[in-house]
Nucleic acid binder design. Structure first.
Lengths: 242, 242
DNA sequence: TTGACTTATATGTCTAGACATATAATCGTG
DNA sequence: CACGATTATATGTCTAGACATATAAGTCAA
């Protein structure tokens, strides 16, 4: 089997080298732990300069496919933990992406000094002002999810005056506070009276719960709880890895 | 404000350049759409060769923080969709990572020709042989999740003879069929009699359901349904992005 | 056998060039 | 004005070197 003739693509050299090695790893020809040829060997094999193979190997290392160790060489990494990329677009995008009509309804909005429960939810210690928002998202006029959100005004003062009667707080935040980090907790509950009514489902029906806690460089921004009807299978995540 | 004096870290030059630009983007100083200085400008500013700033910019482009356009320049990208990295380790790792004792119990294992339902679950059309496995994972002797799995023997013939009485099929597969792709569907149900008994919870209690469908280069491998007690908040996902 | 020192070596970073290539901007023409 | 041809330019890739640095492996003494 030749090295690089299976795909006669118009690839640049370093991309071909990278693809060659990637294929060997993905097909299992070079299993985890296997030592990749040294850079100087690849240089000889492909007849190019070391910078070129270095670029290919560096990208493979960045993708966690190989591990590079000084003096020792480069090695195929063992499959990492399966990690799924869960796309949680903002609700409007999520629903319109499904080809359904997006509907939004503000149920409640309150500006208040943080209660003990608020502080706990946001993970802050000192007293602060917060906005509490409850709203509902619907798809084709059917309830899709209810949202219960807390925004820390110390981090996002503009949220005090923002008009959430038309624009969902998630979309608003996405445009005003980019590049955040977040932590998600996914769980299931059975609907209580209030939830059942909001989602138009039966009391005792299963609900999917996503708690998302968002911050930005150690500053809390918002905590949100999303409730979905449990039978809807909407959190689809694809992942690559092994 | 100086360019690179805030962090006097022992970083290599290209990493410092990358960090400088990244900071400017993350702080909002350079908002989406902003044009990054041209390579030759950065060369002048940092007093280095073009390959060095090119490496910094290439990595930022790989990380989707900037977009590079020939002749036009490099531009700060608008925040992508929030995407969460959902780590779904194999169950043993997941439980031991929590510092709890892992327990495994095979409940049933059947080798059979695929039924219509099996084919549907696996997403294959032609008849095939499958292994159906039901098992339970426990943490500190408390039921943690029940697993209901189907393995396509056409793709993984070894699974026919593998001993799943000691080793969970997930771990086994992870070691025998690396580098797969998968799709997850997350939903919620209420426990029926069988589920309630298996998880040692009340009938009607909420359960979190993860359906994972795994393939490898267009070949179906396995379909698994995991049932967790709904109150356990174990699917924690952190994400970065905006 | 163990620990400290030395050496060899593979990777990490960097340079000062080069040519390729896509494309924004300009210029000319109908 | 519209449209096609030309040009300028920023990025993309590549080279043939260089020195730095971490570390596996070998060496030697206690």
């Amino acid at each position: 089997m030749s090295l690089a003739t299976d795909t006669t693509d118009q690839l640049t050299l370093y991309k071909r080298i990278r693809a060659d090695i990637e294929n060997r790893i993905l097909t299992g020809e070079w299993p985890p732990g296997h030592r990749i040829p040294f850079e100087h060997e690849l240089v000889a094999r492909y007849g190019c300069s070391r910078m070129t193979v270095n670029k290919a190997l560096s990208e493979l290392a960045q993708a966690d496919l190989i591990e590079r160790r000084r003096r020792a060489g480069s090695f195929v990494r063992r499959p990492q933990h399966q990690s799924a990329v869960l796309k949680i677009a903002d609700m409007r995008a999520e629903i319109t992406a499904l080809g359904r009509a997006y509907g939004y309804e503000l149920i409640g909005r309150k500006l208040r000094a943080a209660t003990a429960a608020d502080r706990d939810r946001l993970g802050v210690k000192k007293a602060a002002k917060v906005v509490a928002i409850t709203c509902r998202h619907s798809a084709d006029n059917v309830p899709f999810a209810v949202e219960d959100r807390l925004i820390d005004l110390a981090s996002v003062p503009d949220a005090a005056t923002a008009d959430f009667s038309r624009e969902p707080p998630g979309s608003w935040l996405l445009h005003h506070v980019p590049w955040t980090e977040a932590e998600h907790t996914i769980s299931a509950i059975v609907a209580d009276d209030r939830t059942a009514e909001a989602l138009d489902i039966a009391v005792g029906a299963p609900c999917l719960v996503i708690d998302r806690y968002t911050w930005r460089s150690a500053r809390t921004i918002t905590a949100v709880r999303l409730l979905y009807p449990g039978d809807s299978h909407r959190l689809v995540a694809r992942f690559k890895g092994g």
